[in-house]
C-alpha cells in the first residue's frame, strides 16, 4: 500500500509540475519563443516502433525455466504505439499532457507434455495505454537553430493483456480466462531531430498547406514498471527503446 501511495504521488507530482505553468496562461495566449516562425502549435502526434520484452520472468527471479524465456525464447515483442499530446506551455521549451496506446504480440508453439512443440500456437498480446506529461526543450531548436530537442515524459500506465492457445483464450486454473489488466507508471527520455532544418522551404509549405509546424525523427528510452505498483503477479514492466516520427500541429 505504501508503494502504491508513493508511486501515485510521484506520478501526480510529475503531471502537476508539467501542467502547472499552463494553468497560468489563458488559451490562445501561449507565449512563444522569440524568433519562432510559422503558425501556432497546439498539438503533437507521434507514431513509434520498438522491441519490447516484458519482465514477466522477474516474478520468478529470472530462474531457468521461467515461462516467458522458455515459451518465447526470451525474445522481444514488436511494439507499435501512437500518441497525441496537447501543448499547454511554450516558452522555455514546450510542456503538455498526452495519451498513448499501443499493441504488441508474441507467438510461439504451445508445448506437449514431452516438451516437444505442439501443433497449435500460443500467444501473449498486450495493449499498453498511458496518460503522461511531457516537457521538450525545443527553445534551442527554434531560437538558436540547433536541430536537437531532448525531452522527458512521465505518467501512469495501464496494460491490457491476454493469452491464447490456438484460436481461443487460454483458461486459468480457477476456471477463468487468461485476460486482465495491470497498472503501473513509467518515464521516458528521448532525443528528437528537427527535420525542418534540412528542407526549410518544404517545412514552411507543410505548415502553410497542412498546418504541420515541425516534423521530427526521434529515439527514446522507456522505463515502465507495470505490475500493479509492485503488488506481485504478472509483471508487464519493461526497459526498451522506441523510434518514430512526430509532428507538431
Amino acid at each position: 500500500m505504501r508503494a502504491i501511495r508513493t508511486a501515485a504521488a510521484a506520478a501526480a507530482l510529475s503531471l502537476g509540475a508539467l501542467a502547472g505553468p499552463a494553468w497560468a496562461q489563458a488559451p490562445g495566449t501561449v507565449e512563444r519563443p522569440p524568433g519562432e516562425v510559422g503558425s501556432e502549435r497546439t498539438v503533437g502526434v507521434e507514431v513509434k516502433l520498438g522491441g519490447f520484452k516484458p519482465l514477466i520472468d522477474r516474478e520468478f527471479g529470472n530462474a531457468a525455466g521461467a515461462p516467458y524465456a522458455t515459451t518465447f525464447n526470451d525474445s522481444s515483442m514488436l511494439l507499435f504505439e501512437g500518441s497525441g499530446e496537447r501543448q499547454l506551455y511554450q516558452a522555455m521549451g514546450t510542456a503538455g499532457v498526452g495519451v498513448s496506446a499501443g499493441y504488441a504480440e508474441k507467438y510461439a508453439p504451445a508445448v506437449l507434455e514431452t516438451g516437444a512443440d505442439a501443433a497449435e500456437s500460443t500467444s501473449l498480446r498486450l495493449v499498453p495505454l498511458s496518460l503522461f506529461g511531457v516537457y521538450r526543450f525545443d527553445y534551442a531548436a527554434h531560437v538558436w537553430g540547433i536541430p536537437l530537442v531532448p525531452y522527458v515524459k512521465a505518467g501512469l500506465r495501464y496494460t491490457i493483456w491476454w493469452c491464447s492457445k490456438g484460436a481461443s483464450l487460454e483458461s486459468t486454473t480457477d476456471g477463468g480466462l487468461a485476460i486482465g489488466g495491470r497498472f503501473g507508471w513509467g518515464f521516458t527520455g528521448g532525443l528528437s531531430l528537427l527535420l525542418d532544418v534540412f528542407e526549410p522551404r518544404l517545412a514552411r509549405d507543410f505548415d502553410t498547406d497542412a498546418g504541420v509546424n515541425h516534423s521530427y525523427l526521434f529515439a527514446e528510452f522507456n522505463f515502465a514498471d507495470v505490475n500493479n505498483f509492485y503488488s506481485g503477479g504478472f509483471d508487464l514492466s519493461g526497459r526498451y527503446f522506441t523510434f518514430g516520427i512526430a509532428f507538431e500541429i
Binding site: P67, V111, C163, S164, K165
Partner: peptide, 12 residues
C-alpha cells in the same frame, strides 16, 4: 494435452 504460455506461467 498441450500447454500455452499462461498455463506454463501458472505451472511455474
Amino acid at each position: 494435452q498441450s500447454y500455452g504460455f499462461f498455463e506454463k506461467y501458472q505451472q511455474a
